[in-house]
Write a protein that binds this DNA or RNA. Structure first.
Lengths: 224, 224
DNA sequence: CAGTCTTCTCAGCGTCGTCTCAGCGTCTTC
DNA sequence: GAAGACGCTGAGACGACGCTGAGAAGACTG
C-alpha cells in the first residue's frame, strides 16, 4: 500500500513516515502544496494524507484540483484547527475523511485502513449519466456544463434515479425512497418527473428520463 | 434516501430525525438494538446510523450480526466515548464510518453523503437463451444486440418462460404465475404468445417460443 | 404581512395495453 | 374421412396509465 503524506512540518512528516512504515505502508513525502499536487498526479498512490495548512498551495486547493481532474484517489485531510466547518468544507471538496490534530496513530491507521477497504478509491463523488452530473455533497446538478437549479424534492428524485441509473424504478419504490411513504397517490411522482424533464431534458433536447409504461421510470446512463 | 437511526436517547433520536429530514432524508427510528437489527433486516435502507450504547443489544453486536448475515448496508457508528479503541473496534466490525459525540449536523450529514456516494453495486443476473437476453432490473430485452420493446404483460410472460427455459410450461401454470389467476380463459395466453413471437422470433427468422400441443409452451434454451 | 417558492391534489385528456370474441386452420381420434 | 379438440390471429371495445395545467395549502423570506 503506497501512501503519500503532504505535510510541511518536518518533524511531523518524519514521524508520520516512520509510524506508517512501521505499519507496513510505503510512504512518500511532499513538503508543500504544489509538490504534493504534482506527486499525487504522478504516482498512483492508494491513499493520500493531506495537511490543510501548507505553503504555496493549501490542502483545500490540492484536493479541489485533484477532484476537478477526475482524480479519485482517497484523501484523508489533516487540520490543526478544530472547527467543524473545516471538516465540512474538506469533505465537500471531495476529501474522503478528516482528522483534527492532535490525533493518535491508532486512529490514523484505522481510518487509513477503512479508506483503503472501501474499494480502493476511485468512486467518483459525483453521479454521472452522459453529460448530466449530480454532486450529492454540493447539491449541484449540471448538464452540458450549464448549472441546473432544482428544488429539494426534485433533487432527491433525480439523485435516487441516478444512483440506480439504467434500472427501471417503479413508482412505489420511488415513493418509498424519496417520499418515505407507500400509500400516497403515485401521481405525485408523475408530476415531479414532469418537472424534472422540463429542467434537465427539454431545454437540452434530450430524453434521459424515460417512461417505461406499466413499470416505472429509467434514467438512461448515456444521458438519453 | 432512507436512513435508519438507531438511538435510545429519545431527545437525541428526535433531534436527529428532525435534522436529517430537513436535509431531505427519509428517517425511521429504532430505540434499542434488537429493534434496530430487526428494522435493518426488513426495510431496505440506504444507510444506517447506529449508536453503540444501546439497551438489549449493543451497536457493536447489531453491526456484527448484520455483517454476518451478508447485509452490507452502509453503517455510520456513533459513540459517546471518545476512546480511540472504540473507533478501531467499530471499523473492524464492519462499520463504514465512525463519529464521536458530540458532533455537529454539518459533519454528520457530510459523512452520510460521503457514505452514500459509494456505489450500492447490485446487479441481478440477466437471463439468456441463445442470442436472446432479458435483464429484469433494466427491463430490457435484446436479440442479436438489437433492443426489443415489450409491454408489461409481454415482458412478464417472457421473463417467466426464460426462467424456466427448456421446460414445457402449461397454460394454467402461466396463468397462475403471470396473470395471477387460474380461472381465466387460456386463450389470453395464446394471444400473448402470438404477440411475443411477432416481436422476438418473426423479425429474426427464429423459433424460440415453441408450442407443445396439448401440454403448453417451451422456450428453447438455444434461442430456437 | 405580503410575496415567493415549493409541494401536492385534482380533473381532463389522449394514448397505449389488455382482453374478449369469432373465424379459421391444423392436428388427433375414431 | 368426418368430427371435434386445439391453437392462432385480426378486429375492436374498454379501461388503465401517464401527462399536464390550474390552483390550493403551507413554508420560507424579507
Amino acid at each position: 500500500m503506497r501512501v503519500l503524506v503532504v505535510e510541511d512540518e518536518r518533524r511531523m512528516a518524519a514521524a508520520l513516515q516512520r509510524g506508517l512504515q512501521a505499519e507496513g505502508f510505503a510512504v512518500d513525502l511532499a513538503h508543500d502544496g504544489e509538490e504534493g499536487l504534482h506527486a499525487a498526479r504522478q504516482g498512483d498512490y492508494d491513499v493520500v494524507v493531506l495537511d490543510i495548512m501548507l505553503p504555496r498551495l493549501s490542502g483545500y486547493n490540492v484536493c479541489k484540483q485533484l477532484r476537478a481532474e477526475e482524480n479519485w484517489v482517497p484523501i484523508l485531510m489533516l487540520s490543526a484547527k478544530d472547527g467543524e466547518y473545516d471538516m465540512a468544507d474538506g469533505l465537500d471538496l471531495g476529501a474522503d475523511d478528516y482528522l483534527t490534530k492532535p490525533f493518535s496513530y491508532v486512529v490514523l491507521v484505522a481510518r487509513l485502513r477503512a479508506l483503503l477497504r472501501r474499494d480502493a478509491g476511485r468512486r467518483p463523488a459525483v453521479l454521472m449519466a452522459g453529460d448530466l452530473t449530480l454532486d450529492p455533497a454540493r447539491r449541484k446538478v449540471e448538464r452540458d456544463g450549464r448549472s441546473v437549479e432544482l428544488t429539494p424534492r426534485e433533487f432527491a428524485l433525480l439523485e435516487y434515479l441516478m444512483r440506480r441509473r439504467d434500472e427501471v424504478v417503479s413508482k412505489s419504490e420511488i415513493l418509498e425512497h424519496v417520499w418515505d411513504t407507500f400509500d400516497t397517490d403515485p401521481n405525485v411522482v408523475e408530476v415531479y418527473v414532469g418537472y424534472l424533464r422540463r429542467k434537465i431534458d427539454a431545454p437540452f433536447g434530450r430524453n434521459a428520463l424515460q417512461t417505461v409504461r406499466g413499470a416505472g421510470y429509467r434514467l438512461a446512463g448515456d444521458g438519453g
